[in-house]
Each structure stands twice: as structure tokens, then as C-alpha cells.
Amino acid sequence: MTKPMTKTQLVAALAEEMGADKKTAGAALDAITGLITKEVAGGGAVTLPGVGKFYCRERPERMVRNPATGEQIKKDADKVVKITLAKALKDSVNV
């Protein structure tokens, strides 16, 4: 397994694909990240065609186990971000 691409590497690759400078590509990446974060935090969903759908899901209150002590404790209801991958992305991995 290779190391994940860093933000610097992603910005450089994006700049090359766009034919723009790294500052513009970095601003575009930050804008997209900010928009996705704002929309999902507000309870909405964002679909990136060819990548997937980002959305927030509520988890109910439940019982969990402390792995150190084995004690059962009640965990309050919370929210979690989920990503459903697009079929195109899944298919591109299994070529």
C-alpha cells in the first residue's frame, strides 16, 4: 500500500490538471472543502459526480463497552458523517 496523497501533492496535481497556478488550485480545493463541510454540518448532503455522496446520519443512543475495563456504558445519540462511493469510482478500482 502506498502513502496517501498529501494536500500539497493534491494541490500540485490539481494545478497541473487545471492549467493554473498552485495558489488558484489551493483556493479551489479549500472552497470545495468548505462548502462540503458547511452543507453536511447543516444536515444536508453533497454529491460529487464520479466520487460519491457525503451526508450526515444520526445514530441513536446505545450501549457500548469500555475495552479497558469491559464495563457497559450508555453512549448518547450523536451524528456521524458518511460517504457513499459512486459506482464509477468502485468500478475504476476493480478494473
Rank of each mutant, 00 (worst) to 15 (best):
K23S: 09
T24K: 02
T24A: 03
A25I: 08
A25R: 08
A25C: 09
G26M: 12
A27W: 11
A27V: 09
A27P: 04
L29C: 04
L29T: 01
D30M: 12
D30G: 12
D30H: 12
A31R: 10
A31N: 11
I32N: 10
T33V: 11
T33L: 13
L35K: 15
L35V: 15
L35H: 14
I36G: 12
I36R: 10
T37G: 14
K38D: 15
K38L: 14
K38V: 13
E39D: 15
A41M: 14
G42P: 12
G42N: 15
G43Q: 08
G43R: 12
G44M: 14
G44R: 13
A45N: 07
A45Y: 05
A45W: 01
V46D: 12
V46R: 10
T47Q: 04
L48I: 14
G50C: 08
V51E: 11
G52A: 07
K53G: 01
K53I: 02
K53H: 07
F54D: 09
Y55H: 03
C56V: 13
E58I: 02
R59M: 00
R59W: 06
R59G: 00
R59A: 00
P60V: 05
E61M: 01
E61K: 02
E61W: 01
R62V: 02
R62I: 01
V64A: 11
V64Y: 00
V64N: 05
R65K: 09
N66L: 00
P67T: 04
P67A: 09
P67F: 04
P67M: 04
A68L: 11
A68V: 11
T69Y: 05
T69D: 00
T69G: 03
T69F: 03
G70L: 15
E71H: 13
E71Q: 10
E71F: 06
Q72S: 11
I73F: 07
I73A: 08
K74F: 00
D76G: 05
A77G: 06
A77I: 02
K79L: 05
V80T: 13
V81P: 08
V81Q: 03
K82V: 02
K82C: 01
I83H: 04
L85D: 06
K87T: 02
K87W: 01
A88R: 10
L89I: 11
K90R: 10
D91T: 11
D91G: 13
D91V: 12
S92M: 05
N94M: 08
V95K: 07
V95Y: 04
V95P: 05
